[in-house]
Design a protein around this nucleic acid. Structure first.
Length: 577
RNA sequence: GCACCUGUAGCUCAGUGGAAAGAGCAUCGGACUUCUAAUCCGACGGCCGCAGGUUCGAAUCCUGCCAGGUGCACCA
């Protein structure tokens, strides 16, 4: 199963070799979608300069050697030397038929690579906010896509489960009592618990003293303190899992790889850095100074690996993640799906790891930068009173709003069905909104826009699948039973079939660029192509049984492609809506 | 001050060195006796922040500037 663009690329390359010499057989044929044909090959323009010839002549030579009769019905030199390529309808139909029969839905099977992916990373005893939402959703989509492409993906949920706040949290847990209603807040409203602890810490010197002592005990490995700490982590895990469940995210407890996991590695990391002369003591702290990293007033910025009080910061922990993921997990790509502001920090961590030999040249670390989510005012999304928005409330509001729309439009459905649809549509809308814009840009959060059935939204794609299912229901046909044969005659059929062939490449692109919004853009175009088909090409009312069978096959493939694509994004497709 | 990100239609956002820069929303005008109108079709709308440069060709690459955002020593 190969996409038109790829097949054309190899064909044009052979033509290049034949026309211009073997040394040109590897050059990029520059196949692009065209507004004047299906595709265009732009290689001649670039090569003309090198050859010292007129571009149109070069194009003519390429076309003379080009063997595409089986797949193109028109090959035309146009403009300054573009080669316009128009596919044959029977070829498109044959490819669509192949796609229908392809158990992988056109998704290429790539050579397996171990990829470690760090995403979500909420903090224990703290509410997840919209920033966590986005790294969770984007990270999970990347996981699904990479796995579909055949890679060995290791999820690493780097939760904040260690550090000074735990002294305060543990003491507060003891004060309210283990198992008390207030302790249970960690499962449901963690910020309430955290704020209460914070208030004690700020308001009571006695409490603060206890909290500080507790931190020391924790780091010393005191058994009772560790037990209480574990208790807090477990309570938090209940909260995380409730969110992940609601969000339909693949993370489980097995993926937890929080800061505490690396505690044992930290002293060794510092020792090695110091021994190798990579780190030095500055103002009492063990620091790595790297060339080219300067801050205010040109002062060198350190990566602090051991604080002056002997404690470790996140720089050390992050170094440990690199070491662990390379040495222990055998990862060839290290993905960090975290906020854009961490960019400087990560670059310093990686450069330090390179110097220390923990990050070999053939291992590629990537920062999948996550941009801020903004409110209507263009500032980081907060409630009217200025507090961060509770994620649970935000998700519930999305579901409520979706429920209202479903109730308005589908009074014929029973309540349970409507509630199920509302959940899938509401959550899908929020996730899709996070995924459909490039992950590194900020975007403005707007319920009305993301829940709209028009435009590049989750509901629009879900609606397309629901309409297809409706046709199959009415026709009494099982989508998996559609077998074709596929024929392509109407323009809308042609457009839909051609769009279907682009799925595999779109998924592959996301795997390479780590940009889920490209898959969104593809699925949106496919859904639009389907809508055009839906308007112009009746399926059930088609008079000719052969046309009917062909159209069944086309929409069955469309349904599977849309659902597979949505699934790769982590978005559900309701059977009706 | 240094570094990174962003600047594209009224708004929200796409855009792989290729032809005349795209979509959705909003606005205006149309289409339900039809497989879901929660839909669709059409129109309107652009010094691609500014100025240079590279190139046969630049929203895209380079340099400078302007504007906004973020980060820059012991929180993560």
């Amino acid at each position: 199963m190969a996409a038109p663009q790829e097949i054309l690329a190899t064909r044009v390359q052979s033509a290049l070799g034949a026309a211009l010499g073997a040394e040109f057989a590897e050059t990029d044929p520059v196949i692009r979608p065209s507004q004047f044909a299906d595709y265009q090959a732009n290689a001649a323009l670039a090569l003309a300069k090198r050859l010292g010839r007129a571009p149109r002549d070069v194009a003519a030579d390429i076309v003379a050697q080009l063997d595409v009769d089986d797949m193109c019905r028109q090959v035309e030199i146009s403009g300054p030397g573009f080669v316009n390529l128009t596919l044959r309808e029977d070829w498109i139909a044959a490819q669509a038929q192949e796609l229908l029969n392809d158990p992988r839905a056109g998704v290429p099977q790539q050579e397996s690579e171990t990829v470690a992916i760090d995403y979500s990373a909420p903090n224990v005893a703290k509410e997840m906010h919209v920033g966590h939402l986005r790294t969770t959703v984007v990270g999970d989509a990347l996981v699904r896509v990479l796995e579909a492409l055949g890679h060995d993906v290791v999820r690493q949920n780097h939760i904040g489960d260690w550090g000074t706040p735990f002294g305060m949290l543990i003491e507060h847990l003891l004060d309210v009592g283990e198992g008390s209603a207030e302790a249970e807040l960690v499962k449901t409203d963690p910020n309430a618990f955290y704020q209460a602890a914070r208030e004690q810490f700020d308001g009571s010197a006695e409490f603060a003293a206890r909290a500080r002592k507790r931190v020391v005990d924790l780091q010393a490995g005191d058994a009772e303190t560790l037990r209480l700490w574990r208790e807090l982590v477990e309570l938090s895990t209940v909260y995380f899992n409730r969110i992940y469940d609601k969000l339909d995210v693949t993370l489980t407890d097995a993926d937890l790889a929080g800061e505490s996991k690396y505690n044992d590695m930290l002293p060794g990391i510092c020792d090695e850095l110091e021994r190798e002369g990579i780190a030095e003591i500055s103002d009492g702290a063990l620091c790595v100074f790297l060339e080219g990293f300067t801050g205010r007033e040109g002062k060198p910025v350190p990566l602090i690996v051991r604080k002056s009080d002997g404690g470790y910061g996140y720089g050390t922990t992050d170094l440990a993640t690199v070491k662990y993921r390379v040495e222990h997990l055998g990862a060839r790509r290290l993905l960090y799906v975290i906020g854009a502001p961490q960019s400087l920090h990560l670059r310093m961590v990686w450069e330090t790891a390179r110097k220390a030999g923990w990050l070999p040249e053939d291992v590629e670390p990537v920062h999948v930068q996550i941009g801020n989510v903004l409110g209507a005012d263009g500032k980081i999304l907060r409630t009217r009173s200025g507090k961060p928005i509770r994620l649970v409330e935000l998700l519930d509001e999305a579901i409520e709003r979706a429920a209202k729309v479903v109730a308005d439009n589908r009074p014929d459905l029973d309540e349970d069905t409507r509630a199920g649809i509302a959940r899938e549509v509401g959550i899908g809308a929020v996730k899709y909104a996070d995924l459909s814009v490039s992950h590194d840009s900020e975007y403005v959060f707007d319920f009305d826009r993301m829940l709209a059935l028009n435009g590049n939204t989750g509901p629009y794609l879900q609606y397309a699948t629901a309409r297809i299912r409706s046709i199959f229901r009415k026709g009494g046909v099982d989508p998996t039973a559609a077998a074709g044969p596929v024929a392509v005659t109407e323009p809308a059929e042609r457009e839909l079939a051609l769009a279907l062939l682009g799925f595999g490449p779109a998924v592959a692109t996301v795997g390479a660029t780590l940009e889920p919004h490209r898959l969104c853009a593809y699925l949106f175009e496919l859904a639009q192509a389907f809508t055009g088909f839906f308007e112009h090409c009746p399926v059930l009312q088609a008079e000719d049984p052969a046309v009917r069978d062909s159209r069944f096959a086309l929409i069955a493939t469309t349904l599977r492609t849309l659902e597979t694509g949505l699934n790769l994004l982590g978005v559900r497709a309701p059977e009706q809506m």
